[in-house]
């Protein structure tokens, strides 16, 4: 089992922004307990889904050669509840990307309604983590493939996004 909190990418522009869909379903077990008789998507898992959208965007910028971790959520404001049957659209935009990390702002929309606004800071883990593996090789490109990023993605020059060979994945 994998920790997937988005269903697919609908737009992905390398180094700039990504848009992903999250379909909220009553088949998801966590909704049975959150809350009993009143199922709503936990905001923490919306943050996780937005972080996956943004994290893959940040990782792809360096062909997944850097170790990218979510370091801080400086802001997360929720305006509406998300319920079973709702479709959330997460949009993550890179504000700045450095050798030591990236700043991203993001939104979650429910139809035309702004459901949430977030800021995320990602860190690129440095040399002190050299030799340590965060993911098995190929995991992140596999995730990108499952989420159909290579079907909709564009490179910075507008050409179709190309999947890197496995050996370049996951340092």
């Amino acid at each position: 089992m994998r920790w997937y909190w988005i269903d697919r990418f609908i737009e992905f522009e390398s180094g700039r922004y990504a848009k992903a869909v999250k379909n909220v379903s009553l088949a998801e077990e966590h909704l049975h307990d959150h809350f009993p008789g009143y199922p709503i998507m936990p905001p923490s898992l919306i943050i996780e889904g937005v972080a996956q959208t943004a994290g893959l965007l940040v990782g792809e910028y360096n062909q997944f050669k850097m170790k990218v971790v979510l370091a801080k959520v400086p802001r997360a404001v929720f305006y509406h509840e998300a319920k079973p049957g709702d479709t959330l659209i997460y949009t993550a935009t890179i504000d700045a990307i450095h050798p030591h990390g990236a700043a991203v702002h993001a939104t979650s929309h429910l139809g035309d309604k702004l459901q949430a606004e977030l800021e995320l800071v990602f860190a690129h883990l440095g040399d002190e983590f050299a030799g340590r593996q965060l993911f098995r090789p190929g995991t992140l490109t596999h995730m990108m493939r499952i989420l159909r990023a290579y079907e909709v993605g564009r490179a910075a020059d507008g050409s179709p996004l190309v999947e890197p060979p496995d050996d370049r994945d996951a340092p």
Binding site: K72, D95, H98, V121
Partner: peptide, 21 residues
């Protein structure tokens, strides 16, 4: 320590400057 990363990004944005590592 992680706040310094956030502070660097926010200073860059607020003052339109670049702060190398």
């Amino acid at each position: 320590s992680i706040d310094f990363l956030d502070i660097v990004f926010k200073l860059e944005k607020a003052f339109n400057i670049k702060i190398p590592r």
